[in-house]
Write a protein that binds this DNA or RNA. Structure first.
Lengths: 138, 138
DNA sequence: TGAAAAGATTGTATCCGTACAACTAAGGGG
DNA sequence: CCCCTTAGTTGTACGGATACAATCTTTTCA
């Protein structure tokens, strides 16, 4: 069976509409945490796993100098701490504090809350979506 | 049958990963059009349908003054024109020029290109996705 | 007709983010 | 040991975006 390129395009458009237009919670997060979205993103990643500055810069897709500013701000807020890497004194390991973990969780809850139509979806369809998505994001 | 909230959350996370992390083409668009993403977004909407400044501001989720700057820039590039509304001389109708339509189409092609895993998807699953998405974005 | 409201523009201030240059400290290899 | 590389920081400059005040024209309506 061959593909219907129009169908693939329509599906992609639907996915983008859902995520980017209908249920984009960025502003909610910045309002709830009172920080820019990139700071919240940094905090979420750091809460998931401690990281060096270099790794964090890669995750944020920004350069090292700006990463320093972001982490400076998070440290000032008491949400993360910077420690020297035990095996390489050049590197700093950034770790979320308990307070930082709590804050990151607030962001996760806002961003991760499934939109109403997804919650109202027919359970069989939801399971199907789950299966298909597993292959798509694999 | 009752819902599995974990499944809904997992599906939502998958959707976000796909659209926001794996196949975000914003930078491609800004590079191809040599303009900020919000300008490209304005141009795409204007190419789809002429609009007043007020309507465009709403679409862009920005305020009227900044919308003026964005449209000024698009006019300067010859991609849109501003005309007085025939029924209300206070309003301006912004319309894409033929050149603007061509440029918008480039952006649409970049953003609308379905990601590889979607093109490689089993046709039956693609059709299922199409059906489910139609209910989700309805 | 005169006051109030709406649409758009101009101007200003500020923050966010990107990009670079320059520098310090530490590690690695000849 | 010296040179080169790497990690991180500091500083600067600039464009992008948000927010707000003020102004002008046009429309609406009492």
């Amino acid at each position: 069976m061959s593909h219907d390129p129009q169908m693939a395009a329509r599906v992609w458009r639907g996915l983008r509409t859902l995520v980017l237009e209908r249920y984009d919670r960025r502003k909610e997060v910045t309002a709830a945490l009172d920080m820019s979205f990139i700071r919240a993103k940094a905090l979420r990643h750091l809460a998931a796993a401690p990281m060096t500055m270099r790794q964090l810069a890669a995750v944020l897709a920004t350069d090292a100098p700006y990463t320093t500013l972001v982490v400076d701000d998070l440290v000032r807020r008491g949400l993360v701490v910077r420690d020297v890497h035990p095996d390489d004194r050049r590197q700093k390991i950034v770790t979320a504090t308990p307070e930082g973990e709590k804050t990151a969780e607030i962001a996760e809850r806002i961003l991760g809350e499934p939109p109403p139509p997804l919650l109202d979806l027919d359970p069989a369809d939801l399971a199907t979506l789950d299966r298909i998505l597993a292959t798509l994001v694999k």
